[in-house]
Design a protein around this nucleic acid. Sequence first.
DNA 1: CGTTGGATTGGCT
DNA 2: GCCAATCCAACGC
Length: 215
Amino acid sequence: MKPASLAVAAPLASAFYERMPSDVAPDLLGKLICRDDGRLARLVEVEAYAPDDPAAHTFRGKTARNQSMFGPPGRLYVYLSYGVHWCANLVCGPEGVGAGVLLRAAEPLEGIVLMQAARRRETLRELCSGPGKLAQAFGIDRALDGCDITGSGAVTILDDGARPSCVIACPRIGLSKNADAALRFVVAGNQHLSKPAPFTNASAPIRRNKSPTST
DNA sequence: CGTTGGATTGGCT
DNA sequence: GCCAATCCAACGC
């Protein structure tokens, strides 16, 4: 039987995405990415890209590749990385502003067999633990660039009310420009990250919440 | 118009 | 750890 929480999962509306990506990104952790064929995973790692960020694809304006990032929020921006791997972003900010959140890793929940077939890998940990892996596991490619993610399309982002235990902000992966900005957001300690969060003063004090009723 | 460098991954040394 | 795969856009000439 499916978890009861799935019964109340609802798509995030476009207003959720119509904010700065640095605000949207941490709020996306714990949300569900859902494919219309039943594939489902919980987001555990994302990165924010604002239009004034030299590392963002939109920094130098609109091109044929990135035009969907300038479109309305609540849609996909899909691009080819290193000429090999598709990567999926969620378009953020008001229409006309080139902002987005890169989906980097997720914890597989349902439709595992479909993900395994798409990835040609068996182990859960190898299905969605990286931006290229996540897109491949969900069958996301150029055909889905610009598609709506608020409920009517092939891919939808759902909120089932779950909250991540602890969120860490740290530097993004694989950048040469603006490499120090803490715009990568991860669920601390999750086993499906592309890489663990580095130890910092900010991440060191992680502790489990004290139970309000025990002891 | 040629060169260079990526928001990456997987296979091999 | 190193590196090839191979598209796209920025940059230099």
